[in-house]
């Protein structure tokens, strides 16, 4: 039995993420159970962690820090035990060194980089970047396997992460310039888009995540 924790820190649509993971699990082998929790002990004991997040960067960062022992428990699960981790949207952006939404807010700094406002060219392109865009894999990754040609995924965001190291970018998309769509480093994986809302392609990505065993 694979146990996956969805971190509930008061931000993000944990219900949609959970249901999408449960559906994705049906397509795979092996049993998967999901829990929604903010309990550090539980997070240390699970086989994988998903960190959702929507809304304001500073609010999400504060909510995460305000839960005692939460960040330390995730850190231990990921970096000591090598458990796979997936951040979604702001849940991915929190991995960066800092975010620039309204003010400079420190992130977890597990992947060096910053989160800045989208500035598409030409400047009349609307922000938020909202809707279905093409995912372009730039570094092959097990979580992005088998998506076929020109897969579409659902984005809705005004800020995006720019990793310091080019090799941390797993996939990008184009919207008046290149945008980081997915990041990966060791057991860490993150998507700017919403796999839980990306229909069949999103289901495949979540199924890949459930089957992923970071080496």
């Amino acid at each position: 039995m694979t146990r996956i924790a969805i971190v509930d820190y008061g931000s993000g649509n944990v219900r949609s993420v959970r249901k999408a993971l449960e559906r994705a699990a049906l397509s795979g082998t092996g049993n998967v159970s999901t829990i929604v929790t903010d309990d550090p002990d539980e997070l240390r004991s699970v086989d994988g962690i998903v960190l959702p997040g929507v809304g304001h960067y500073a609010d999400c960062a504060t909510a995460l820090r305000n839960r005692s022992g939460l960040i330390e428990a995730i850190h231990e699960a990921v970096f000591t035990h090598g458990r796979p981790f997936m951040g979604i949207c702001v849940g991915m952006q929190l991995l960066a060194t800092f975010g620039e939404e309204d003010q400079i807010t420190p992130g977890l700094d597990w992947i060096s980089g910053s989160v800045g406002r989208l500035r598409p060219t030409p400047s009349h392109l609307p922000v938020p970047h909202m809707g279905w865009n093409t995912l372009i894999t730039v570094n092959d990754h097990p979580v992005l396997a088998g998506l076929g040609d020109g897969p579409h995924v659902y984005f809705t965001h005004s800020y995006a992460m720019t990793p310091l190291e080019e090799q941390d970018i797993a996939a990008r998309t184009d919207y008046g310039g290149s945008i980081t769509a997915a990041i990966a480093r060791g057991p860490l994986f993150g998507t700017q888009f919403h796999p839980e809302k990306s229909q069949a392609i999103g289901q495949r990505i979540l199924a890949n995540f459930l089957n992923w065993r970071p080496g």
Binding site: R15, S16, K19, A20, R23, Y154, T156, H194, E196, K197, S198, Q199, G202, Q203
Partner: peptide
């Protein structure tokens, strides 16, 4: 909304 979101994985 809950019933839809539980089975339609779309915005």
């Amino acid at each position: 909304i809950e019933r839809t979101a539980d089975e339609c994985f779309m915005p």
